[in-house]
Design a protein around this nucleic acid. Structure first.
Lengths: 90, 90
DNA sequence: TTGACGCGCAACTCCATGGTTGCGTATTGT
DNA sequence: ACAATACGCAACCATGGAGTTGCGCGTCAA
């Protein structure tokens, strides 16, 4: 696990909103996630921009993705968040 | 406490090294901190660049500073780190 | 088969930010 | 008084990253 990638992923407010959605529903398609962000958080953003954020979160190990036919299923994993703060909080 | 500022502060690897030093020694002058980073972590960086990082950390509430004559004393505060991860780790 | 839809990819723009350089200020020791 | 030093400030440059646009591909229902 690359801690640098985790902190980079957390640096963006849109990605933190995405994590908020995932902490309520651990499995979502990219389509569902986009719809939720637009409707519940008034996020005005294109699908492609969201897809980029998904890539960043995936490289950080915070989500994993799986192709299911037409849809792309995203699964949340908060384990990196648990381990990344160890060095300062004792 | 502005969580956005905290995550921004954590996004940079140099600032995370600074926090590493602070978690070992909670009070340091800016001069001491600069010397430690250069010697113990082989960080090649100017004093001004460090001062900018200090400003970012201070705005995030992660350190507080106090002028003591010629020196600027910096004091670590990890409380924002404890509260900022709540929403995803339950 | 054909159209709609969810998605991937690449090029482009724009701006925040890390870093440097140069100069000025205040404090301290001799 | 004067030199050394720890620091603040402002301008500048270069890079990375967020966002958009346009196009094409694969899947599914009619």
């Amino acid at each position: 696990m690359d801690k640098d990638l985790v902190f980079k992923a957390l640096a963006d407010p849109t990605r933190r909103l995405m994590l908020d959605e995932f902490s309520e529903c651990k499995e979502q398609t990219l389509y569902e996630l986009t719809a939720r962000l637009i409707m519940r958080h008034n996020v005005s953003i294109s699908r492609q921009a969201l897809a980029k954020h998904v890539d960043v979160l995936e490289k950080a190990g915070l989500i994993s993705s799986e192709k299911r036919g037409k849809y792309r299923m995203l699964v949340f994993n908060n384990e990196p968040l648990r381990t990344v703060m160890d060095r300062w909080i004792k």
